[in-house]
Amino acid sequence: MRFRVSSMKVEASAGSQNMPPLLKVENLVKCYARRSLVGRGEELLALNGVSFTVFPGTTLAVVGESGSGKSTLASCLACLESPTAGNIWFEGKDIVKVEERVRRQLRPQIQLIFQDPASSLNPRWSVLEILLEPLILRRKFTREEMKQCASSLLERVGLSPDFVERPPTELSGGQRQRLAIARALALQPKLLILDEALSALDCSVQAQIANLLRELQSSLGMTYLFITHDLAMAVYLADEIAVMSRGRIVELGSAEQILDQPQHETTRQLLRALPRMTRALPAPEQ
């Protein structure tokens, strides 16, 4: 089945469609081959022809069942895995095929927040060192400015300045997750890929980070690829939602379309399984 990429047609609410796309993915395929000692090797098609387009200043949410290829997609976009076939155009350059030298220049503009932050933060560094590293790489600031920047980032993700001297191993799961978010934001990438970045956070902190992401989008024109299992948050943050199943995008459309007229069985299943909570609460009085 050919999939119609409807992003071309939908009126963008935040970004501008007059601009060329920031990211254009064409027929991306990722095959994990595995040699086994007995019998023949196995192959697993983690991505099986994925195509979509993201315009600057917009958010594309990617939802889908566990194992459908979301993190594999993220790794390919962040140049951590090389795709088996297909193209990834970032600002008009194919990052799969460009020379290493060009890729190294593009790399900092695409940041990935990993699904599992513990494995991406150096346990021997302090929180401050982890935050300063990307700033040092950017070589634009004095030490004083960097410290200021680091503490303002911490504040914005709701981490107390008391934490700066601690190693990440002495933080709670959600605090570590927020450190990973702050670190990615420090680089001010053009494209930020968030792989389940909010899922380890309580509702209030999730809301705080969601607000921050939206604010940065409108002030800096950031573009997000937001991988999540939380459909409510996807609807809240995204201009468009892509639904993945078994390595393919099976449905892509505006949040309203996905909610009101889900076309594919996977989407219906995800919607049916949504836990509901009756909320009979008035807003808290001020």
Partner: peptide, 20 residues
């Protein structure tokens, strides 16, 4: 209060900030 509504109050939700 901070949980974004998905089915309720639709339409109004997207542009407002989530309470924290």
């Amino acid at each position: 209060q901070s949980i974004p509504a998905i089915f309720e109050e639709r339409g109004s939700g997207r542009k407002t900030k989530l309470p924290v």
